[in-house]
Every structure is written in structure tokens, then in C-alpha cells.
Design a protein around this nucleic acid. Structure first.
Length: 430
DNA sequence: TTCGATT
């Protein structure tokens, strides 16, 4: 019934067909241009150039599925790293897409290779232990080897055998220590690592991003989006922070989050469970519109400078539930010398990631209200974070909302501990 | 691993 269509044959793919990832293709080549190149290895079932979801920009790579598994294998061995398309300075990549096979348990990371060692050298070293499906040396933008590689075997056992025999077995010429052979990071680990790296670079940390960092596709979307925005920001002298804020807000909007800190997050207190994306409550987070853009307006009421009103912390308090977007940074700066708010407004946060600074701490808690100070404690001698800090809000409601949402919040391997700061005289017996 | 900053 559906064998043929007027426009051409409807191809069926074999059940063991492999989806290939094709990288290093010029951005001016579309599906139609690429087709001839790949057709010589067999009938193509599907060929899709990857486009940026938001900008529609050609991403320089594609997914390719042949009808027959064999065609994919042929194309891979004939093309992968074998030729360089016009205008590219690196050879084309043709290999099973990440979505294929998962394969994490048979993929090795190889470190401490000599910078001169080629893919072939590495293959020779590893082939005694099994069928090598993939071997890639990691290279910098200039094509120079980073001294490490990924090697993927057909099975976990083969990979394990290679580890047993090769790890630490020898020191390659030019390497600073002996060969490292271990299982490659899982997707989770990799994503998490990238997050941390990115967070460090951007000086930002969005709890949602961290939270879902370990949960795959969702995060990738965010990261892509942030990256795109970063790129845009660089091109137009936008403040990158503003770009990120925009990205965050879009994400939050996607969650249909209302403007207020509201919902009880996790019913249980103490160590709350890390949200699996589908099951757990999503932290409901106020949209911190003014967060990164400094509001041009000083806090004042009807033309009366707020500073006329004296509060103990020197900060003009906003109503707890005010949808008004204050400019917390400005407030924070204004209140710098008075770091603690009233009782019930100050949080003690423990198990912070080592790389968290004041800015990240503040960033993380801004969604819950007006942060009047955020301080990560650093060891004076080493300048290293002591992994704890304080956040003060201008009202107890915000503080409670923050506790609800952030206590037990998982970041990497640790869970934040977020509780009210002990009053000064708390543990005095009398 | 746990509670306010070089004045």
C-alpha cells in the first residue's frame, strides 16, 4: 500500500540501522548538498542538518541514517577523519550519534598520551583488547593533540581488559606521567562538569540549571540557549549577564512560573529529594527581572527618598509579596555594611560548591526575595571558599521561601543545607 | 566539613 510515492521511493530502514553524527560540515551546505556525498555508500533513509533551535542557524553538523547498517559502517570508515570539506580546517566526523548505543560503559578515556601520537598509534595500542568502534584524539582549535583520546570498544569487557592492561602501564614520550586509561565520563558527569565550568566562566549559577544539570536534554537546551545568547551578547555590546538573565527568564516562563515566590516546594523538610524532572515539584521561582539589570530607579516612595526612613539594616524594606521588582544588587551594595537583616531573615547555607562566590550565592537566592547580602566565607590564608555562607533577606517570608526551595537542593554530589542563622546568643545556656 | 566579614 505504501511502497511507492509519486515523488520517489519511500525508503525503509533496517532495524539495526545506525544513526550517524556528521560533524565538521561547512555551514553553507544543506541537506541537498550533502546528499550526493553520502549516497555513494548506500541509500539514505534520513539526513538532517542540525539547526539551532532558537536562531535557526546551521550548526555545522548533521544526523544521517542509512537504510542499511552496512552503509553506515562503510561511510564511517571511508569518511570519518578521512577528508576535509571545503572551507573546514578539520576533517569530517562520521560516527554513530550519541543517541545510538549509549555505549558509555564501553568507552574509555585515555589520558597522558604523547602529543605526537595519532589515532592510528592509539588504535594499535588498544586493538589487542577488542574491536575498536571509535577512536578519537582530542584536539584543540589549532588541531594540536590535547594528549588524550576516547576509545570505544564493542563491549564493556573489552574496555575493562584494556584498562587492566594499559592503565599506568607505560609513560608515553613527552607525557608527564604514565598512561591513564579509564571509563569515560557518563553523560551525567560530563554535563555536570560542563555546568560547573560554564558557571565559573559566567559568574552565574541558576539553581534550575544546576538542579537539572544531571538530567540531560532539558539542561542541554538551556545551555544551548545560554550559549546562543552569549554569542549574541558578544556581537552587540549587550551585557552578558543580561543575556543570561533573559535566558533564565525564558526558562522560568516555560515553567509557567508566576511572578511570586509561592508554592511550598517539598512537603518534607530536612533533606528533600532531588527532583527527577518529571516527578518532583519544580522549584517555583520568582522571576528576578531586575536581577542583573540595575534598575535605574533608587528605592523611593512617591518621590520621597527612602533613605529618610531609617531601618536597622539601612535598607528600605519592600513588602514581602510585592510583585515589584526591586533592584536587589543595588540594595545589597547599599546595605553592605549591615550584612545581617532582622531575626528570621538570615540564612546559613552549608555545602556550597567550592567554586561558589558571593555573586553566585546571591544569584541563587535572588528569586526568593530581596537579598540584602550574600556572603561566602573564604579562608583568608588560601582564599578558598569554606563552602558555607550567609544570605540575608529583607523579610522573613522570603527567607522561609528560600529554605523551602533550597534546603536539600542537590548540586553535584552535595545537597545544600539551608537554615535560619542561629541567633547570636542561641546556644548560651542562660 | 556547620553560623558574619582585615575596620
Amino acid at each position: 500500500m505504501n511502497g511507492l510515492a509519486a515523488g520517489g521511493p519511500i525508503a525503509m530502514k533496517d532495524h539495526d540501522a545506525i544513526k550517524l553524527f556528521v560533524g565538521q560540515i561547512p555551514r553553507n551546505l544543506e541537506e541537498g548538498d550533502l546528499k550526493p556525498l553520502f549516497e555513494e555508500f548506500g541509500k539514505i533513509y534520513e539526513l538532517t542538518v542540525l539547526k539551532d533551535r532558537f536562531t535557526g542557524m546551521h550548526k555545522g553538523c548533521a544526523f544521517l541514517t542509512y537504510c542499511a547498517r552496512d552503509s553506515a559502517l562503510k561511510a564511517q570508515s571511508a569518511l570519518h577523519e578521512q577528508k576535509t570539506l571545503p572551507g573546514m580546517n578539520r576533517p569530517i566526523q562520521v560516527k554513530p550519534a550519541d543517541s545510538e548505543g549509549r555505549g558509555e560503559d564501553r568507552k574509555l578515556f585515555v589520558g597522558m598520551l604523547g602529543k605526537q601520537q595519532s589515532e592510528d598509534d592509539v588504535r594499535r595500542l588498544f586493538e589487542p583488547f577488542g574491536q575498536i568502534e571509535e577512536c578519537t584524539i582530542l584536539r584543540g582549535p589549532d588541531g594540536a593533540s590535547k594528549g588524550c583520546a576516547f576509545v570505544k570498544y564493542g563491549s564493556h569487557a573489552e574496555a575493562q581488559a584494556a584498562i587492566s592492561s594499559l592503565h599506568g602501564s607505560q609513560t608515553m614520550p613527552g607525557a608527564s606521567s604514565s598512561l591513564v586509561v579509564k571509563f569515560a565520563d557518563t553523560d551525567k558527569e560530563r554535563t555536570l562538569r560542563r555546568m560547573h565550568q560554564m558557571a565559573g566562566q559566567l559568574g552565574i549559577f541558576n539553581p534550575m540549571t544546576i538542579q537539572f544539570g544531571a538530567y540531560g536534554a532539558y539542561t542541554q537546551a538551556i545551555m544551548q540557549q545560554q550559549a546562543a545568547l552569549m554569542a549574541a551578547a558578544q556581537g552587540t555590546c549587550l551585557n552578558p549577564m543580561a543575556a543570561i538573565a533573559a535566558a533564565q527568564m525564558q526558562q522560568m516562563a516555560a515553567f509557567n512560573v508566576s511572578g511570586l515566590v509561592a508554592a511550598p516546594m517539598t512537603p518534607s523538610s530536612g533533606t528533600s529529594t532531588p527532583p527527577g524532572i518529571s516527578t518532583a515539584p519544580v522549584p517555583s521561582i520568582a522571576t528576578p527581572i531586575g536581577v542583573n539589570g540595575f534598575s535605574p530607579l533608587p528605592p523611593q516612595t512617591n518621590g520621597q527618598p527612602a533613605s529618610e526612613t531609617i531601618y536597622t539594616n539601612g535598607i528600605h524594606p519592600y513588602p514581602a509579596q510585592s510583585p515589584t521588582v526591586a533592584d536587589p544588587l543595588q540594595q545589597a551594595y547599599a546595605g553592605m555594611q549591615h550584612y545581617a537583616g532582622p531575626e528570621g531573615c538570615n540564612l546559613f547555607i552549608y555545602h556550597l560548591p567550592q567554586e561558589f562566590g558571593d555573586a553566585e550565592l546571591m544569584q541563587m537566592f535572588l528569586p526568593f526575595g530581596n537579598v540584602i547580602s550574600a556572603k561566602v566565607f573564604v579562608d583568608r590564608a588560601t582564599n578558598q571558599s569554606k563552602c558555607f555562607g550567609f544570605v540575608s533577606f529583607d523579610n522573613p517570608t522570603s527567607a522561609q521561601a528560600a529554605i523551602q526551595a533550597m534546603n536539600g537542593f542537590q548540586i553535584g554530589m552535595k545537597r545544600l543545607k539551608v537554615q535560619l542563622k542561629r541567633p547570636k546568643d542561641a546556644n548560651r545556656p542562660y
